[in-house]
Simulated scan of single mutants.
Amino acid sequence: MNVLVTGGGGQLGSEIKANTLRKGQYFFADADVLDITQKEAVRAFVQQNAVGLIVNCAAYTNVDKAEDDEAAARAINETAVAHLAAVCNEFELPLIHISTDYVFGGNKNTPYAETDLVQPLGVYGRTKWAGEEAIRQAGIEHLIIRTAWLYSHHFGHNFLKTIQRLSAERAELKVVFDQVGSPTNATDLAALVVHIIETGSYKGKHETYHFSNEGVCSWYDFAAEIVKLAAHQCKVLPCLSAEFPSKVTRPAYSVLDKTKVKKDFAFSIRHWREALSNP
């Protein structure tokens, strides 16, 4: 089977490329290869390459910038997703779509289940939720996988790499401790996606799932562990989000309940500390 992975050069797309056993032909396409905001371009690519499944890793993820550039965020996170869903509907293809914890408001104190009320706090969350809804309304076979605090040891720009760099340059860092969640190693999410693809367990599903690594921490805890593993002498200090003013309010609590994904796919998930220390 031919699989199209959009956002193929990003950190998750690159991890999927590194994880796949290549049972079939994979096309890893970035915007320079395929502009998914253009429906006819998507349709032509699918038809010309006999695509049998689409995995959408493409997203506008700059949370702060999205507040000033809603049109660009909406084009990628909503309109492009609607185009993918429409093409999947036309060719009767399943779609695996990556979404985010930012669809929630962060006002709970227990892990978010897939059925919990959404309450996005900014443009990024609203456009990602709109993309999810476009898929559901298309009526196609689909898996929507919401994740949180995604990072890769190997690819892209992310919190891990930023803390590694800054802690090598500075004597101390302040990191917020009033935002709590679960980091996600992109290698582990990629392993789940590849498992779903290559076992065919996406077939017949119209479902939403949550995935992150196990355990709970603040950004401060996460940063402190990164610095410890890097053996840097930088001191990590906890601070409040108010010390770093932002155009968008981030969820204070975004822990995801992974009961459903573990049950449906018999997939074991590592603790975030193990995933961080063992790339």
Rank of each mutant, 00 (worst) to 15 (best):
E172I: 08
V5D: 04
P94W: 06
L160D: 00
Y124S: 05
H232T: 06
L93R: 04
L121T: 02
T208V: 15
G131M: 01
N109R: 09
H83A: 08
A72E: 14
R22T: 14
D101H: 06
P111D: 04
N56S: 10
K205F: 04
E141F: 09
Y60V: 04
G204M: 13
S167P: 03
E198M: 13
N77P: 03
W149P: 00
N278Q: 14
Y60A: 05
K247A: 12
R136P: 03
V248K: 14
V5N: 00
N109L: 08
V5L: 05
A191E: 07
Q25D: 14
M1A: 12
I135A: 08
K23P: 11
L143S: 06
E114R: 12
R136F: 05
D64F: 05
S218C: 07
E67Q: 14
V175K: 03
N19T: 13
T6H: 02
R146M: 06
E132G: 01
W129V: 11
K174T: 07
H142S: 03
V33N: 08
R250H: 10
T208E: 09
R250L: 13
P279R: 08
A82N: 01
P238C: 07
H153I: 01
H97P: 03
K108Y: 00
F28I: 08
K203Q: 12
A86S: 14
L276H: 01
H97M: 05
P183E: 02
Q179S: 09
V55C: 00
K247Q: 15
I16L: 02
V227H: 02
V3W: 06
T37H: 01
F244N: 11
T79D: 10
H195K: 09
D178W: 07
F211T: 06
L166A: 05
E225V: 11
L173W: 04
V261L: 12
P251W: 05
C88D: 02
H210N: 13
F267S: 02
A134P: 06
E15D: 11
E133P: 03
V5S: 01
F222Q: 03
I196Q: 10
H195Y: 04
T259P: 04
L21I: 09
T249Y: 10
T20E: 06
I76S: 06
